[in-house]
Design a protein around this nucleic acid. Structure first.
Lengths: 236, 236
DNA sequence: ACCTGAACACCGTTCAAGT
DNA sequence: ACCTGAACACCGTTCAAGT
């Protein structure tokens, strides 16, 4: 039963590949790499497996299914979200800053919004920003139930905006293509029958304004924060 | 060159099938049927073609691609949206009613929100409700640019809510499953380390409240309409 | 316990060939 | 002009078999 000291342990049989074993972390790493390189549409179990030099079946020992991998990716991205420490004097601007940070992160991982849109983010990193946003809402004296539902609404809004952008961003549209699309949209609105669509025709310019930059998003922040501020009781 | 009157036109050769020819309308009809019967995930070019007793390639003579079919389905569903005629005295409630109607329609076609989420609805029926919503915003004296961007934000919010619901609704969850999920969620929040997540733990009940019904959606309506109301200039 | 090849049941889209 | 069969290049997931 004793092994001779001269008997090396499996001496010249590195037939079993020496590759580091798979785990969730390495799988998510690979998935994020595919996301950054080729966009969300390309993040398939097969492509991720390929990036790890194995077959798709191997992933299922560590990840329940594609949906779970999506969740893990969202939580990985959530790491980058920065929410300021609550200060009652400027809670409204802080809330906006938190949302701006969320959008920034989603833009940094184009298409991650697609993975995030239908799911409640429950990972540890996502929970940390939820907690920080709750603190800001409490600092602003937003009632508890409103604060809780606001959390949901905020991330729904930011995710939806990022999702919309990623749809435009996909299929390799250049900035020129987007400008052309917007110009076409405006022409479409302006060309509608004036008797049935008087306001759409009149506001064609306003309807397509700010499609490129952050103005639309900032408008949404203003609406949401303004609406929440209106829910703060007047007493004290 | 003249045909004899006794020479019947292709008399007993109905070898060429007599089926009514394909067109966009029939294709969208079939797609909506598949959507209602089997949900959005099942709406593939192949399944729609099958419902029309043909192959997927046949659809491409009438529809550019799956994306366009999605758009046509969204516009078809938009037919059901009812927006009240603008009345300055109650524009806020009217705006909410319009959004409630949008959600109702999306719930009637489970999963159509999935087709709508990344696209600007430009079909004739969708434009009609855009025009009506603009009228309400104008009646409320919301500034033009705000009204135009609000249109976008409103439909983004409703679509995102419907999308979220459809994700839960898919995979055949029963009401009991959803309740179990919510109970589990609450337990998860309550079980987080109190030192790092004090607010999440304290507000666990509020965070999961109203997940089933319309309370969350109504909260969102209140926030958005309240935020828009705050943008109405005080003069006059 | 972990990994794998091969298969199953699907996708969207294209294209040459038919009528 | 419209339709079609067949193919191309993909999917997520399962499962028996390997180590």
């Amino acid at each position: 039963m004793n092994q001779s000291p001269w008997q090396p342990i499996s001496p010249e049989k590195p037939a079993r590949p020496v590759r580091t074993p798979l785990n969730r972390e390495r799988i998510v790493d690979a998935a994020m790499r595919v996301l950054l390189d080729q966009g969300y549409e390309a993040v398939s179990m097969r492509k991720v497996a390929q990036a790890l030099d194995t077959g798709p079946a191997s992933l299922y020992a560590h990840v329940a299914n594609k949906r779970e991998l999506d969740q893990l990716m969202v939580d990985r991205a959530a790491e980058g979200i920065v929410v300021p420490a609550a200060d009652p004097a400027k809670w409204q601007e802080q809330l906006k800053d938190g949302m701006r940070s969320m959008l920034k992160v989603m833009r940094a991982y184009p298409g991650v919004a697609r993975a995030a849109i239908g799911q409640v983010p429950l990972g540890e990193r996502a929970m940390a920003s939820t907690e920080a946003m709750l603190a800001i809402l409490k600092a602003g004296r937003v009632p508890d139930q409103a604060a809780a539902w606001a959390i949901d609404m905020l991330s729904l809004y930011v995710t939806a905006v990022a999702f919309e952008e990623s749809v435009q961003g996909a299929s390799g549209w250049t900035l020129e293509d987007v400008e052309g699309f917007i110009a076409g949209l405006r022409t479409y609105f302006e060309g509608l029958p004036v008797d049935r669509f008087p306001l759409t025709v009149a506001l064609a310019g306003a309807l397509v304004a700010g499609s490129g930059g952050d103005e639309r998003f900032e408008f949404g922040l203003e609406v949401i924060v303004g609406g929440l501020a209106a829910m703060v009781p007047a007493d004290q």
